[in-house]
Design a protein around this nucleic acid. Structure first.
Length: 278
DNA sequence: AGACGTACCTGACCGC
DNA sequence: TGCGGTCAGGTACGTC
């Protein structure tokens, strides 16, 4: 499911449920998600108050009163639902956080999600976080940082942007949308992006992510907000999942050009406009 | 070192 | 209706 805007939407939805609240108990309905849950996971969390909710790339970080952080990745299909505490289990409910009145349930059909505990001070060296690139909506992400991240790389620009070491939080949808907004071909070699194109791309990445967060993310299959409503950004896609359709503001003869094109790059669908993306 | 394919899972959808 | 094939928003890992 989720790229940065969806994870940020989930984070914002969790704030009123979790911030300042105590997690009374944690129940695991299986010992693993993508990887085994760490030893003592439930016990370490139980009884703690959640002091803050952060996000790093596509990871959620729950800050607990005792200094521990809970690291959570939603994988492709992970979601949180807030349920009456007595409610029966749904299929694929794997982890239950008992909040007293309600139970916050982590449901993940494909089980590509992950959870881990991070001891105080251990975040920078955590194996899943240590190589992660700049946070795209922070001041640390500048056109020059982006340009240097792409420098010398022979991978297609699309692949380089999906690589979380280049910039954190982009996935298949928002890479496609950002490349369209920047007018850059996904096939272009990453190292061919110099200062001027990096400036455009930097601007496009931020604009697309901010607009998507504003819309509550994109709901295609799995992503729903905690209040049960869908994100709306899928209605604003310029190219993603729009094969054969005209791109926004297009004046081409679509019957002749075929409109938005779909191709496969490193095994994944890429959508782009061959006319406006070079 | 860096790029690529493979693997991990389930469910939805399509054509037969 | 049922079956097999394909695809899906992620990413670590092995291989070259």
């Amino acid at each position: 499911m989720p790229e940065l805007p969806e994870v940020e939407t989930v984070r914002r939805g969790l704030v009123p449920l979790l911030e300042g609240r105590r997690i009374h108990a944690v129940t695991l309905h299986r010992p693993d998600l993508r990887w085994p849950l760490p030893q003592g996971f439930a016990k370490a969390i139980a009884g703690n108050v959640v002091t803050a909710l952060d996000r790093r790339g596509k990871y959620l970080l729950w800050r607990l009163q005792d200094g521990t952080s809970v690291l959570i990745h939603l994988g492709m299909s992970g979601s949180f639902r807030n349920r009456p505490a007595s409610n029966v289990r749904d299929k694929h409910d794997h982890v239950v956080f008992d909040l007293g009145e309600t139970a916050l349930v982590f449901n993940d059909p494909r089980r590509f999600g992950a959870m881990d505990l991070i001891a105080p001070g251990g975040e920078a060296s955590h194996w899943l976080l240590k190589a992660m690139g700049p946070e795209p909506l922070s001041d640390a992400f500048t056109p020059d940082v982006l340009r240097r991240g792409l420098e010398g790389r022979t991978a297609p620009l699309k692949a380089a942007l999906l690589d979380q070491r280049t910039v954190a939080g982009l996935g298949n949808i928002y890479v496609a949308e950002a490349l369209f907004a920047a007018g850059l071909s996904p096939k272009r070699m990453a190292r061919s992006v110099g200062a001027a194109r990096a400036e455009r791309l930097h601007c496009a990445i931020r604009a697309v992510l901010m607009a998507a967060i504003e819309s509550g993310g994109s709901s295609l299959r799995d992503h729903i907000r905690l209040d049960g409503t869908e994100g709306l950004f899928q209605h604003r896609f310029a190219v993603y999942d729009r094969e054969g359709q005209p791109c926004p503001g297009c004046s081409c003869d679509v019957a002749r050009t075929g409109g938005v094109r779909r191709m496969v790059q490193s095994g994944r669908s890429t959508f782009y406009c061959p006319t406006r993306q070079r």
